[in-house]
């Protein structure tokens, strides 16, 4: 026995072990690649304005809230933050309100025109949608929607709606039709069956797709910059002040954009597949 071990034969177990090490190492390297840049931004955001512009840099934050308080108190920032939240919330409501019924219809019915609708939804993904803000800007001026939260939310809904449709479609498809049918045979109307059986089961997923819609709007830059002037969202505000604002303002603003995004993605992490798994079809 010992003679064999001494000969250092590479057994499959050894190879597997080496493979596992390599796998873990790769995972760590890739994680560092993703996390390190975010960490560096946070270091900047948590340093005083003086430290941010100083050279050389420290790689640890000083936990000075100078940059952040400067950012918060900077003229227009509080309003921009509020606008971002408002637009994103409206987008979320519109996208789910329009998207979920469509997702339900696609998952439960076979009807003429179904293919056309799916094509329409999928087609939106082949287009650089923010560009559509350009013609809409004119339309909005005519209808009084220019520079309003609802106007921008409508454009953001175009971005978020296809996702809402696809995600809710996959959610509802994942709930067996039999559950609904069982509810019907047990005395439910269609609406009662939906409310008592389907909705409770789909709710976490619907919430996740709502968060996803919120994130899409929260992050969108181009349409926001095109469509808002007075009522800028945070992204539009940061974009338009890129030229003149000091570094520490940019970094604090960047952190203000990133931190909620981290939370959003954490909240929807279980549903990332639902969002894209179905999109393969």
């Amino acid at each position: 026995m010992s003679a064999v071990t001494d000969a250092r034969v590479t057994t499959p177990a050894d190879a597997r072990k080496a493979g596992n090490w390599l796998l873990t190492a790769t995972a760590i390297v890739l994680s560092v690649w993703v996390l390190l840049p975010i960490y560096l931004l946070i270091v900047n955001a948590l340093s005083s304005p003086g430290e941010v512009t100083a050279f050389p840099k420290r790689f640890l934050p000083s936990f000075d809230l100078g940059s952040l308080s400067f950012f918060i108190n900077f003229a227009g920032v509080a309003r921009a933050l509020w606008n971002s939240v408002l637009v994103a919330t409206l987008t979320m409501i519109l996208a789910i309100g329009f998207g979920a019924p469509a997702g339900y219809a696609l998952s439960r019915f076979d009807f003429p025109g179904k293919g056309t609708f799916r094509f329409l939804v999928l087609m939106t993904r082949a287009f650089p949608l923010p560009l559509l803000a350009l013609p809409l800007a004119v339309m909005f001026i005519r209808t009084g929607l220019d520079d309003t939260a609802i106007g921008l939310a409508l454009v953001h809904t175009t971005l978020a709606l296809p996702f809402a449709v696809l995600i809710t479609f996959s959610l509802f498809s994942g709930i067996p039709v039999e559950l609904e049918e069982a509810a019907w045979t047990l005395g439910c109307t269609r609406w009662q069956a939906f409310r008592k059986v389907i909705l409770p089961l789909a709710l976490p997923g619907i919430a996740a797709s709502a968060v996803f819609a919120f994130t899409i709007s929260w992050n969108e830059v181009f349409a926001a910059a095109v469509l808002t002037i007075e009522n800028r969202t945070l992204t539009a505000f940061l974009l338009q002040s890129l030229g003149e604002s000091p570094l520490y303002l940019k970094f604090a603003g960047g952190a203000a954009l990133v931190v909620p995004a981290l939370i959003f993605i954490f909240a929807v992490r279980k549903y990332l597949f639902a969002m894209w798994g179905i999109a393969n079809r």
Binding site: P176, E178, L179, A182, A183, W184, T185, L186, C188, T189
Partner: peptide, 16 residues
């Protein structure tokens, strides 16, 4: 279905 006085047992049980 609800007005037919029936009850049904499904192949995959459909237990909520």
């Amino acid at each position: 279905p609800r007005d037919r006085g029936i009850a049904m047992v499904f192949q995959n049980y459909a237990v909520f």
